[in-house]
């Protein structure tokens, strides 16, 4: 119970981060190696905003929730214009370019933010004891065992992530911006032939993808602390999720995020976090062998 709740928290932020990666790959065919650094930047900006505003943790947090994704998104859109557009979105060169971007972002954070891990206070954090059931004198009865508790903030992470994902789904399927993105994803050249400014769509998608990573980070930072090296883990997990779910398939990404997040949480609690990573990587290998297009991917893109 506790383990699956921890897993759900991991799954929630992972779904947001991986969704950003998957969206960028789906529409732009760009493998964004710097995605984890956008996540890290989200957390660092969250720390910065909440300490600057610093009156009440809730104000700082809400500020961070708005400022961090927007700022990171703008930065990513600028990076798209300045770097990715100049190399024509050539698949190999974008990988090298985003590796470069990864180090630029990471090291400039080290130079400015420093090597310390810094906490962000959650906006609210009350302990919630969880009920459990046992066989008592009169059948099943509910009780509150010692140590079985979570915090209201962790529940909030899950709810917020679900809300954001629903919002994203509505954006993609019900709005003009989403239609333009999906048309660009389906056929870039024809999108141009029907008046869609593909370069602007690309900058927007890259910014949106990075913004989602930053959002995931802002949500998790009160639980985890901001650190300049924190981008590596979510990057690896996001890649695992995106590969399992099928590159560019958004529903597949969510399912895979749930699978990996939950198993990561549960296995980490009962065994060790290392075993969880080993198993996740094993699943990737199995998926690549038996279903190279991913769970919900299409055979030949």
């Amino acid at each position: 119970m506790l383990a699956s709740l921890e897993g759900a928290v991991t799954a929630a932020t992972l779904a947001l981060t991986a969704m950003g990666l998957s969206l960028v790959f789906g529409v732009m065919r760009v493998v964004n190696v710097a995605h984890g650094e956008f996540y890290m930047l989200g957390a660092v900006i969250a720390w910065f905003v909440s300490t600057t505003l610093g009156t009440h943790p809730a104000i700082g947090f809400v500020g961070a929730l708005i400022v961090a994704p927007v700022l990171v998104g703008l930065l990513a859109a600028a990076a798209d214009r300045l770097i990715l557009a100049r190399i024509n979105y050539d698949p190999e060169r974008t990988i090298v370019a985003t590796i470069g971007l990864l180090y630029i972002l990471q090291q400039s954070t080290l130079m400015t933010f420093g090597p310390d891990a810094r906490p962000v206070e959650p906006p609210f954090n009350s302990r919630i004891a969880l009920p459990w059931w046992r066989q008592g004198e009169n059948g099943l009865e509910m009780f509150y065992p010692w140590g079985l508790a979570t915090t209201s903030y962790k529940l909030f992470i899950i709810v917020a992530a679900v809300a954001i994902l629903i919002g994203l789904w509505v954006l993609l399927t019900r709005t003009r911006i989403g239609l333009v993105m999906r048309a660009t994803q389906a056929d870039r050249e024809m999108a141009t032939a029907f008046g869609i400014p593909v370069e602007r769509v690309y900058a927007m998608v890259f910014g949106l993808g990075a913004g989602l990573a930053a959002l995931g980070a802002v949500l998790i930072v009160p639980v985890q602390q901001a650190h300049y090296l924190m981008g590596a883990d979510p990057l690896l997990l996001s890649f695992i999720v995106v590969i399992i779910g099928g590159l560019g398939s958004l529903p597949g990404t969510i399912i895979a995020a749930l699978l990996i997040g939950m198993s990561d949480g549960i296995i980490s609690v009962f065994f060790s976090p290392t075993l969880a990573k080993i198993l996740a990587t094993l699943v990737v290998a199995m998926v690549l062998v038996f279903r190279p297009q991913g769970l919900l991917g299409k055979a030949s893109a």
């Binding site: 239609l179 999906r182 048309a183 389906a186 056929d187 999108a191």
Partner: peptide, 8 residues
């Protein structure tokens, strides 16, 4: 070859 937006 028509080039529709095939997923749409």
């Amino acid at each position: 070859g028509r080039r529709l937006f095939s997923d749409l």
